[in-house]
Design a protein around this nucleic acid. Structure first.
Lengths: 239, 239
DNA sequence: TTTCGTAACAGATCATACAAGTTGAAGTAA
DNA sequence: TTACTTCAACTTGTATGATCTGTTACGAAA
């Protein structure tokens, strides 16, 4: 009978109640995307609360991406972007990151990315090819000593492959992982002799397979690339 | 040279600057989880800002799950829960209904989950088996008319397979996807004659393969299960 | 018609006061 | 000494009013 003493409905603060009210109005489409909310002063009167409490509720709503506040203009219901959700996941991954997780991150990539390359080959649009091609030419032009920029470009290439899958769930899943890669950069993309040439060639193969809609070749090429990453990491560990 | 007229860096408000500062401190582990922040008044002095501006920054941080504010006690750095990120993702799909979501989820699962089953077969611990077995017996005991509970149990089984992979990245990758599954519950686990028996059998096969550390069999069994889901969804679409 | 200034209005910030919850130490009774 | 009570000194929450800064629309001037 512990339930009798269960926590009492954790006294919501006033500003939280206001937040809920407005959130509900948006969820129920009583406030449509783009609609302008009444001004702060008006809302204060309507809710019969102080501007302090009201503003804090509005701050929370804007932090969650539900409304946009434009100084001098007003407050507007904003279309919630998938980016807001991804940012939130990125933050979680960022705070959870630990260098012990590196081999596990590589394992996930080894397992998932070849399949993603296959999906990209099947679903890619022409504009995806442009982006991939640009990544490769950027990689070629990149100063060989600038391993940091090199790694960034490579990450962008892989993210663009995920985008070429045309499946937002894939993007949501992989983007947080890619956001962690810069933190393992110097561990993995170590300066190995002739490595850059190999990397460019490998990525070009992936690109061509996606371009030709050759799903199996894209799969295999990606397997090769990730295995190479794994090898370099293993070498690094031995040092 | 369009860059010349690029949008000017939308002047951050003071409270946003404060938000960033504190967020960075948390990201860089200068403030550890559970640590108590200085009181509002102290922070005001430190940042040399008014309490209003400071509090609005703190409201945003708490809305994002980074800190917890206890009235009368103080403010504490809170361990960011994946639930916060998942809530954000679900809010997005609540507001922007997308009929493509279900096939996209199925596609991702079809590609990822067999590999996860393989990893689970290789890495599972005994306690993972207990959980999986319990899911199956729960499924057997479940009232056949309660399709909602059936679907929940099945989802738990799949999440437990992910956990059995012993790769935390796999788990946090899949959790957001599983959080979206309730949306397809009544669509997919429709009452098809004999479907429940098939489902139980299929999941038992997956379980046995993981138990026996037979990675290939686990892979194949999972492929079969997800394909079956796809079939049922396709049938549903035709109606 | 175009340009430009300006007034009205929006949110942003500040300062102060008080309400309400939490904590811990001082004090009291057994 | 020990256990309980009380209360003062914190904490955050809310209210109010003044002021600063950016946006918008309108009308006067070119």
């Amino acid at each position: 009978m512990d339930e009798i003493f269960e926590k009492i409905g954790s006294a919501q603060t006033l500003s939280q109640k206001i937040e809920r009210r407005i959130e509900e109005a948006i969820r129920q489409k009583k406030l449509l995307v783009g609609a302008k909310l009444p001004s702060e002063r008006e809302l204060c009167e309507m809710f019969a609360v102080s501007r302090t409490a009201l503003r804090e509720a509005l701050r929370r709503l804007s932090a969650r991406g539900l409304i946009e506040i434009k100084k001098g203009s007003g407050m507007y219901v904003s279309e919630l972007k998938i980016k807001d959700a991804i940012d939130s996941l990125n933050l979680y991954y960022d705070l959870s990151f630990d260098s012990n997780l590196i081999p596990q991150i590589i394992e996930v990539r080894r397992v998932f990315e070849p399949e993603i390359a296959r999906m990209a080959a099947n679903n890619r649009r022409d504009k995806d090819l442009d982006l991939l091609l640009k990544n490769i030419s950027d990689l070629e032009d990149c100063d060989p000593d600038n391993t940091q920029m090199e790694a960034d470009i490579i990450n962008k290439f892989h993210l663009n492959v995920a985008k070429a899958s045309c499946n937002p769930i894939v993007i949501i899943t992989m983007e947080p992982i890619y956001s962690l890669l810069p933190r393992m950069r110097n561990l993995i993309y170590a300066n190995v002799d002739g490595e850059k040439d190999f990397t460019i060639k490998a990525h070009r193969t992936i690109y061509e397979a996606i371009r030709d809609k050759d799903a199996d070749k894209a799969f295999e090429a990606m397997v090769g690339q990730i295995n190479r990453t794994l090898e370099i990491y293993t070498q690094y560990l031995k040092k």
